[in-house]
Amino acid sequence: KRPMNAFMVWAQAARRKLADQYPHLHNAELSKTLGKLWRLLSESEKRPFVEEAERLRVQHKKDHPDYK
């Protein structure tokens, strides 16, 4: 399984919050909304998630050196 990218790291927590706020939204609508919200974030707001995704990528490479 591939490591999560920055969006997926962020969306993991954001999806729970959004689903709690809008329990009537279908998963497809949640995903579209999350995409729009992510694009509205500034680079500095995204930075911690980009850094975490990079950490996960490096760890994955270490754990699975033959993964392509």
Rank of each mutant, 00 (worst) to 15 (best):
W38P: 02
K17E: 09
K62P: 11
A53Y: 05
E54F: 01
L41T: 03
L40Y: 13
V50E: 09
R47C: 02
R15Q: 03
T33M: 13
M8L: 11
F49K: 13
R55G: 10
K61S: 11
N5L: 01
E52M: 00
T33D: 01
R57A: 12
Q21N: 05
K46V: 09
A19P: 02
L37V: 08
P3Q: 06
M8D: 10
H26E: 13
S42F: 09
K1G: 04
A19K: 13
P48A: 06
F49L: 09
D66V: 05
R39S: 09
R39Y: 00
E45R: 11
D20E: 14
M8E: 15
D63H: 13
R15Y: 02
L56F: 05
E43N: 14
R55V: 10
S42W: 07
M8R: 14
K62A: 12
N27D: 12
D66R: 04
D63W: 04
L34R: 00
S42I: 03
H26K: 12
Q59P: 10
A11F: 03
V50G: 11
Y67D: 15
L41V: 09
E51L: 02
E45M: 15
H60G: 10
R15L: 01
L34G: 01
Q12M: 05
L34Q: 00
V58S: 10
W10V: 00
R47Y: 00
A14Q: 15
R2K: 12
Q12N: 04
T33A: 12
F49N: 14
H60I: 10
A11Q: 01
K17P: 00
L37M: 15
K62F: 03
R16P: 12
K46P: 06
W38F: 06
L25M: 04
M8F: 14
L40E: 15
L40V: 08
R15T: 00
E29N: 12
D66T: 08
Q21T: 09
K17T: 01
R39P: 01
P48M: 04
K17L: 03
L34K: 00
E43G: 14
S42M: 03
L40G: 15
D20R: 08
E45Q: 12
S31I: 03
R47G: 08
V9A: 15
Y22M: 15
L56E: 13
V9D: 07
R47T: 11
V9E: 15
A28Q: 08
E45F: 15
Y22G: 07
R16W: 01
L40F: 08
Y67N: 12
P3Y: 09
R55F: 12
L18M: 11
L18D: 00
S44E: 13
L37Y: 06
H64R: 11
W38S: 02
T33Y: 14
K1R: 06
R57N: 11
Y22T: 10
